[in-house]
C-alpha cells in the first residue's frame, strides 16, 4: 500500500510553494544525475541499476526513466534481497517493476546461506547486512555487470563523503580510498580492465532533504512505511526496532505499540523506526528540516559498529 502524494490541504499547498522555491537547485541536481546516467549507458556494456525500494533508489530509477524517455531504461535492474526486508517494501518493489515492464534480478542472501556460500550470524543481534556484500559481488560476477549504479549520497556518512561519482572496484570488488582516480569537471573516466567494475553514484550531491523535495515535485509513490503508522516495536540500544520473525527479543526487551515511521529503509534487523506522526510528504519534510539527528544515526544499527564501520564495509565491496 502506498500513500498518495496528492494531499489537498492548505498545508500541502504551502508545501508545493516551498518545492517551487527549491526548483532551480533541484533542476541542477536532476540534470547532473541524468548526465551521469547517460555517461554510464554510453561507456559501459553491461550496466546494472541497484534498486531496493528505498527512497534514494526510487529517485534514481525515476531519473533513469527521464534520462532515456521516450526510450526504455538501458540498464538491468537488481535487488540484493536479504530475505529480511519489510513486506511493504518488497510489494512496492515488485509493483514498480511491473509498471516499468522491467524484469528484476534478485540476488538472494537466503540462497547464498542455503548453498553455504555465506554463514548466517547467530544470536539475537544477528544481521544479514554484511552478507549482502558477498551476494552483491557474486551477482555482479555472475551477470558480468561492468557498472553498478547506486543511490548512495555523500551527505549520508563520512566515508561516502569521500567517494567519487565513478568509483573503481578492483577484481576483488574492493574500494581503495587512498588510490581514487582524480575526477575533474564532468569528465568521468569509465575505463577499466576486465574483471573490474565501476560503482556509480548519480545522487552523490543530493541531500536527504533534496530527495524528499524531489519525491514531492515528481509526485513519486513511496512505500507506506516512510509515513507514520502504528507498529509493534521495542527499544534496543536506544533505537526502536520492529518486532517480527527475523529478530529475537532479549530478556529485558518489551514490545509495545507505537506510532512510528522509517527514515531509511534497509532490512528489518538493522533499520530502526523513529517516533513520528508525520503522515504526509509535507509533514515528513517539516520533520526532516528540523531534525537534529542524521538519518543514519537515527535509524541504522549497521553504522554503529565502529567509527569506520562504513569505510571498512565499503573497502570489502559493500554498496
Amino acid at each position: 500500500m502506498t500513500v498518495p502524494v496528492d494531499d489537498r490541504s492548505a498545508e500541502a499547498a504551502a508545501f508545493l510553494a516551498s518545492t517551487e522555491r527549491e526548483a532551480s537547485h533541484l533542476r541542477l541536481l536532476e540534470s547532473e544525475a541524468i548526465h551521469i546516467l547517460r555517461e554510464v549507458a554510453a561507456e559501459f556494456e553491461r550496466p546494472v541499476l541497484l534498486f531496493s525500494g528505498g527512497k534514494d533508489s526510487i529517485v534514481l530509477l525515476r531519473l533513469a526513466e527521464l534520462a532515456f524517455a521516450p526510450g526504455r531504461i538501458p540498464f538491468a535492474v537488481m535487488h540484493v534481497d536479504t530475505g529480511h526486508n519489510f513486506p511493504e517494501v518488497i510489494e512496492y518493489r515488485d509493483r514498480r517493476m511491473a509498471e516499468l515492464g522491467a524484469s528484476l534480478i534478485v540476488g538472494s542472501v537466503q540462497d547464498a546461506i542455503d548453498r553455504g556460500r555465506v554463514v548466517e550470524e547467530r544470536g539475537p543481534r544477528a544481521s544479514r547486512n554484511r552478507l549482502q556484500t558477498t551476494v552483491l559481488l557474486d551477482s555482479i560476477a555472475e551477470h558480468r555487470f561492468d557498472a553498478a549504479l547506486g543511490g548512495a549520497r555523500r551527505d549520508e556518512e563520512k566515508a561516502r563523503a569521500k567517494e567519487r561519482v565513478f568509483s573503481a572496484r578492483d577484481e576483488f570488488g574492493q574500494w581503495n580510498p587512498r588510490a581514487q582516480r582524480p575526477e575533474l569537471w564532468n569528465l568521468y573516466n569509465g575505463l577499466q580492465h576486465r574483471g573490474e567494475h565501476m560503482r556509480v553514484f548519480p545522487l552523490s550531491n543530493w541531500t536527504e532533504l533534496d530527495i524528499w523535495h524531489y519525491i514531492a515535485r515528481e509526485g513519486l509513490e513511496i512505500p507506506s512505511i516512510y509515513f507514520a503508522h502504528e507498529r509493534e516495536v521495542f527499544e534496543r540500544d536506544g533505537m526502536l526496532m520492529s518486532t517480527g520473525q527475523y529478530i529475537q527479543l532479549l530478556p529485558n526487551e518489551h514490545p509495545s505499540k507505537q506510532v512510528v515511521r522509517y527514515r531509511t529503509v534497509g532490512d528489518m534487523t538493522c533499520t530502526a523506526a523513529v517516533p513520528s506522526s508525520a503522515s504526509s510528504l509535507y509533514e515528513v519534510i517539516q520533520e526532516i528540516a528540523t531534525a537534529r539527528i542524521t538519518e543514519r544515526g537515527a535509524s541504522r544499527t549497521d553504522d554503529r559498529t565502529s567509527e569506520a564501520a562504513m569505510e571498512d564495509r565499503k573497502r570489502e565491496g559493500y554498496f
Binding site: K158, A159, A161, K162, P177, R178, A308, E311, D312
Partner: peptide, 9 residues
Amino acid sequence: LTDGLRAER
C-alpha cells in the same frame, strides 16, 4: 567533521 577516512583521522 570532514576528515572521514580512518587514515585521515
